[in-house]
Nucleic acid binder design. Structure first.
Lengths: 218, 218
DNA sequence: CAAAACACTGACCGTCCGGTCGGTCAGTTA
DNA sequence: TAACTGACCGACCGGACGGTCAGTGTTTTG
């Protein structure tokens, strides 16, 4: 009588459950955990409130189910970004632009994860980092470290710091673009590709060791 | 009988009102608008709930009062950062490290403003940007533009994009440091000064025109 | 020194919240 | 056909929410 299994994401789920998950994911990412009521989820999903409790034990459980699904989705998408065989700077460049593209293409998921990582409590952010972001970050760092050993990356820089700068720039652009578009001079917000291009140019130009620099114009 | 004036921040305010503002600022920055109840504010401030409504028309008005106070505080602090007369790169460097320092020193205010700017609705983020961040950002951009005209900044870069990168790196570090400290390799989170230093090094190294570069080690 | 103005409170209101309960109904299984 | 199961619903619960109000002291002021 009570919902027991749940979160068996791959197992068949009823149309109602799918509708609930979809509606809730959107609402949570848009308004946040506190701001979303189970009534609003039910209404948006076109089901009764009681039906949600048939599928999920609590509001918390529903949120967690969505979080786990999002995390799995995210890390699956990131899986494809490594194992590039090109030059160091080309790898970095490719990763970074794909990373931003991914953020933009999966707005709901990304927003949810960022909300959780930045404003959640200690335990949740730790779990999130260890389960999802951590792997990506470590791969990124090892790419940087390899580049450093090959003499392409400046030896005086912290590889983890470099990775943070690169991924952070994407993340900041993603979450700040709504606010930035109210600033007249910041016309670049409407062209993420152009931002990504110039950002990577600046970063690589600043990070690569002297002999490796292609050096932007001028 | 009804609260009317309010938000006359400089005029004398009762001990109760001050306690309310202080408690509410902390709670809002920590838990967010939805998560904070007027009862919790009253309890934290050591006053009755009704007393809050004596000083502020509504929860919304209380939030706005804190937001305005924070905004004023922020822009006052930023006011001192401009008008430097040194070299272009020294100005940028000084501004950026002071900016991060300011974020860290005013955690409550900063968190509140970021929350508002990033996850608030259209209208609020616009108001915030126009009233507070906009000015700082424009000053930053004009510094960059001047540097560009003087031939110190690469001419192929968008000045506003450069400003975004620099300020964004600080902001990202500020809000991500809680999550980053769960990543073993990211030991730099515990030394903001070191982060700031290397970040500015990379940025300037990537942004300055060739002849201007001092070039980090190696 | 009275009166107006202000700071403040406890009790209360209607509403919405997360969650529960008894029950219906369509679809399997035996 | 009878027993059972899972999807689903309307009505309801206690409690917390934002907000109100009549009233009590305290301070300022004409």
């Amino acid at each position: 009588m009570r919902a027991t299994q749940a979160e068996n994401s791959s197992l068949r789920q009823s149309a109602g459950e799918r509708a609930i998950l979809e509606a809730a994911a959107w609402l949570f990412s848009e308004i946040g955990f506190d701001g979303v009521s189970m009534r609003s989820v039910a209404e948006a999903a076109g089901v009764s409130k009681a039906n949600i409790y048939h599928h999920f034990e609590s509001k918390e459980a529903l949120y967690l189910a969505i979080l786990h699904a999002s995390a799995a989705e995210l890390s699956a998408l990131v899986e494809n970004l490594e194992e590039s065989s090109g030059r160091f700077d080309a790898n970095i460049s490719e990763f970074s632009s794909a990373h931003l593209q991914h953020l933009m293409d999966n707005e709901t998921t990304s927003r949810l994860m960022l909300r959780e990582a930045f404003s959640g409590d200690e335990e949740r952010s730790r779990m999130l980092v260890e389960r999802v972001v951590g792997g990506t970050f470590e791969r990124m760092v090892s790419i940087f470290r390899a580049g450093q050993e090959a003499g392409e990356l400046r030896s005086d820089l912290d590889p983890a710091l470099c990775a943070t700068l690169l991924m952070g720039a994407d993340v900041f652009f993603f979450q700040a673009r709504g606010a930035l578009k109210h600033i007249p001079q910041a016309g670049f917000v409407r062209r993420p590709g152009r931002f990504s291009e110039q950002m990577i140019d600046v970063m690589l130009n600043g990070m690569l060791s002297k002999k490796q620099r292609k050096g932007g114009a001028q």
